[in-house]
C-alpha cells in the first residue's frame, strides 16, 4: 500500500488535530463570503469523489457529471417543495434517483470506451439540462426553482453559512469514509482491474458489466447527494448551473487533484475553487492565467496534485535516511517505496 505510512500516522494524533482544525474553521474564517466558498468546495468535492470512483478508479471517463448533480438538486428540491418531504428523506431519494439515472446511462455506455464513452456522457448531461429547460410545468424552465427550503432536523433549521458548514462537512466526511472503504476493498480493486484491462478482468471471472454499472451508480449517487445539499444551500436552482462547462469543471477538479485518489477529489476542488478566486485581482486576464495553469498542471503533473504525495514522502524519508545508520537506510528504503 502506497499510502500506508500516511494513514497509519493519520490514525494517531494527527487525525484528532485534523478534526479539531476542520471544526474550528467557521470560527476562524469570519468572512461569510469565504465561508460560502469553503462550503461550495465541500459540495463540489462530493461530486468529484463520485467522479473519481467512476473515472479514476474504473476508468469510465464521464463528462456528464453535472447531469447527475442536476438530477439530485431537482429531485430533492421538488420533493421538499411539492411533497414537504424532510431534507434527509429528499437527500436519500436524490441519491437513489441519481443512481438510477447512472444505471440508465451506464447501459448504453457498457459497450463504449474512450471518446465514444465521453460522447455518450456529454450527450446525457446535455439531455438532462435540456429537459430541465423545456419541462416547464415541473422544472419552471430556464427561470428555475426558487425558494428551495433549508434543511431542518428536529425543528432546528440549517440556515447560516456556519451551520451549513457543519452539515456539508459532516456529509463530506461520511462520503470520504465510505469512498475510502470502497476503494480499498475488493470492489475498489475490481474497479481498478477494469480500468487497467477490462478483457483480462473478464477472463479472470469479473462480471465487468455489473461493476461498470455499479461504478456509474456510485458516481451518480455522490453527485445526487451533493446536488440535494446544493439546492438547499443556494435556495435556487436553474439549468444554467448544470451545463457542459460545469461537467468539464468537475472533470478538471478530478484530474488536477488526482483522480486515482479519494483525497485527490478534495484537493482538486479546493485548488480550482481557490485558484479562480485568487486570480480575481487579475480581472480580465484571470481566465487566461487559469487556462494556463490547467495546461501546465496537465503537462507537468500527470498524476495530479495528489501524485505529489509519494514524491514528497520519498523526499522526506530521504532526509530522515541521511541521519540514520546504514542498516536503517535499507529498512526505510523499503518502506519508502
Amino acid at each position: 500500500m502506497k499510502s500506508h505510512k500516511l494513514t497509519s500516522s493519520l490514525k494517531g494524533l494527527h487525525k484528532w488535530v485534523l478534526i479539531a482544525v476542520v471544526l474550528s474553521i467557521p470560527f476562524v474564517v469570519t468572512n461569510l463570503y469565504y465561508l460560502h466558498l469553503i462550503n461550495l468546495i465541500g459540495i463540489y468535492s462530493l461530486v468529484v469523489i463520485g467522479l473519481n470512483i467512476l473515472s479514476g478508479y474504473t476508468g469510465q471517463v464521464s463528462m456528464g457529471q453535472a447531469g447527475f448533480f442536476a438530477v439530485g438538486t431537482y429531485t430533492s428540491a421538488l420533493l421538499m417543495m411539492k411533497l414537504q418531504a424532510p431534507f434527509w428523506v429528499a437527500t436519500v431519494m436524490a441519491a437513489i434517483v441519481a443512481a438510477i439515472f447512472g444505471v440508465v446511462i451506464a447501459i448504453p455506455a457498457l459497450r463504449l470506451t474512450g471518446p465514444y464513452l465521453v460522447m455518450a456522457t456529454v450527450g446525457f448531461g446535455e439531455i438532462i439540462r435540456l429537459v430541465l429547460v423545456n419541462w416547464v410545468p415541473v422544472t419552471k424552465g430556464a427561470a428555475g426553482l426558487t425558494g428551495i427550503p433549508a434543511p431542518s432536523f428536529f425543528g432546528f433549521t440549517v440556515f447560516s453559512e456556519r451551520s451549513f458548514f457543519y452539515l456539508i462537512y459532516a456529509v463530506v466526511a461520511l462520503g470520504i469514509l465510505v469512498a475510502v472503504r470502497i476503494s480499498r476493498s475488493k470492489i475498489g480493486r475490481t474497479f481498478m482491474a477494469i480500468r487497467e484491462d477490462e478483457l483480462a478482468a473478464e477472463s479472470m471471472g469479473v462480471p465487468t458489466n455489473i461493476y461498470k454499472v455499479a461504478a456509474f451508480a456510485i458516481g451518480a449517487a455522490y453527485a445526487g447527494v451533493a446536488g440535494s445539499i446544493f439546492g438547499s444551500f443556494s435556495g435556487v436552482a436553474s439549468p444554467d448551473g448544470f451545463t457542459f462547462d460545469d461537467s468539464v469543471g468537475f472533470l478538471c477538479m478530478s484530474v488536477i487533484g488526482g483522480n486515482r485518489s479519494i483525497f485527490g477529489a478534495l484537493i482538486g476542488s479546493i485548488t480550482l475553487t481557490l485558484l479562480s478566486e485568487l486570480l480575481r485581482f487579475m480581472q480580465s486576464y484571470r481566465l487566461i492565467v487559469y487556462g494556463a495553469i490547467l495546461l501546465l498542471t496537465a503537462i507537468f503533473m500527470p498524476q495530479g496534485l495528489s501524485g505529489l504525495g509519494p514524491i514528497l514522502r520519498e523526499f522526506l524519508s530521504r532526509r530522515k535516511r541521511d541521519k540514520k545508520s546504514y542498516d536503517d537506510v535499507q529498512c526505510s528504503q523499503r518502506k519508502g517505496r
Partner: peptide
C-alpha cells in the same frame, strides 16, 4: 495482460474474484 498499475498482490487477488464474496454492506460500514 496484467493490471499494470496495480501491485502484484492485487493482481493475484483479482484471480480469486469468483471465490470470495463481495460483502457490500460490510465494506461500507467497515
Amino acid at each position: 495482460r496484467l493490471f499494470k498499475d496495480m501491485n502484484v498482490e492485487d493482481n493475484v487477488l483479482i484471480g480469486q474474484h469468483v471465490h470470495t464474496p463481495t460483502p457490500v454492506l460490510s465494506i461500507i460500514f467497515g
